[in-house]
Design a binder for these strands. Sequence first.
DNA 1: CACCATTTAAAACAGCTGTTTAACTCTGGC
DNA 2: GCCAGAGTTAAACAGCTGTTTTAAATGGTG
Lengths: 210, 210
Amino acid sequence: MSQTDTVSRILDAAEVLFAERGFTETSLRTITSTAGVNLAAVNYHFGSKKELIQAVFERFLTPFTGALEAELDRRIASGQPLRVEGLLESLYRVGLGGLRARGLDPQRFMRLLGLAYTQFQGHLRRFIVSRYGESYRRFAGLLAEALPGVDPVTFYWRLYFMLGATIFTLSSYDAIEAILKEDFGAQSSLSETLERLVPAASAMLKVEVG
Amino acid sequence: MSQTDTVSRILDAAEVLFAERGFTETSLRTITSTAGVNLAAVNYHFGSKKELIQAVFERFLTPFTGALEAELDRRIASGQPLRVEGLLESLYRVGLGGLRARGLDPQRFMRLLGLAYTQFQGHLRRFIVSRYGESYRRFAGLLAEALPGVDPVTFYWRLYFMLGATIFTLSSYDAIEAILKEDFGAQSSLSETLERLVPAASAMLKVEVG
DNA sequence: CACCATTTAAAACAGCTGTTTAACTCTGGC
DNA sequence: GCCAGAGTTAAACAGCTGTTTTAAATGGTG
């Protein structure tokens, strides 16, 4: 088994298991046995469990932020003024299609992103901010420009409201979808949900209080 | 030390520690030593760690849902038609003031509620749904009545968007507040944030797509 | 073919986990 | 004043955790 094989087999297994059970609840032994590699391979290739967690996020976030930056470049190059709906569509389309094109599961990505915010892994938050904070700030800045009437503090609170609605909903997508299917018999897809999320989140960002 | 003393000392310590670090990351030894009681007291009084976790939630949720039900009764008895903003205000006012009046910390409540949704404690989700699902359905039903133009499936998705925005934001309230203070020097309070949340969430629930 | 660094393997490490046991202390009722 | 039962205590339990060690195997290069 070549090195890259072992490394990516570990990442594959860790990604699935972390998304299913969380970080603390997933042991290295579970990861290595489902990956079919030796226990010591994790510490050999990644150094520690913490660094494995970071590597899992890196494999998701690097393509994601790369595709997002490219999409933003494209929108700006088009010359048209940036609108809230368009920016959110960009974000979601990249999160959905951009990851899928690279063979990554967008729902798993959302679950992991949700975990990164709510689980108590200080190192992970620091890692993400230092590595991908620049892309985040760029997106937030463009969104703020598209909302000239909203004062900065209100804007940032609403940005967190929007992130909360997105991350929370999508990371529990399977559970919510199952409930709605049982109660209404309504089958829905992830892209349908994002189509509902764009106008809802836009309205939340834009509302004028009087 | 009387029994009630030991029981409530354990609950106090567990509540703080769970909210700070999560369930798996908090050991019974940490809980009992900060509570100043013997390790075996948890298993003696609660049976197991799982049941301790449920007891912590029970102490929060029973007063919360009780106060919410009373508030809804009051609103209905007033005879005025129920509006979205009013219902959200009821929810938040009860979560803030109702808990505080009982000596419970609303921010800790929100952190714990966030954990209940994102941590992988199947028993906890089942416990909460079976115990407090009725109140949840009542509130959701009244909110749906206040939104006659929104079809049921869309309504439920938006309800989850709203819950996500609320739980996510308030459970990370301290962190977000610290960032905004550093960037804008803007001191803000929990009740101010809820005042921002009411119109934002209402707009999200009400928006008409065209 | 032989060399050597890279990679894998099995085993052991110390430390922590939730839970249980058995002995002990205390308190309320007779 | 005593005794049953509730409450507390320290100790031990078995099992799991991330990490390290030591040795064997592998695979590309001279």
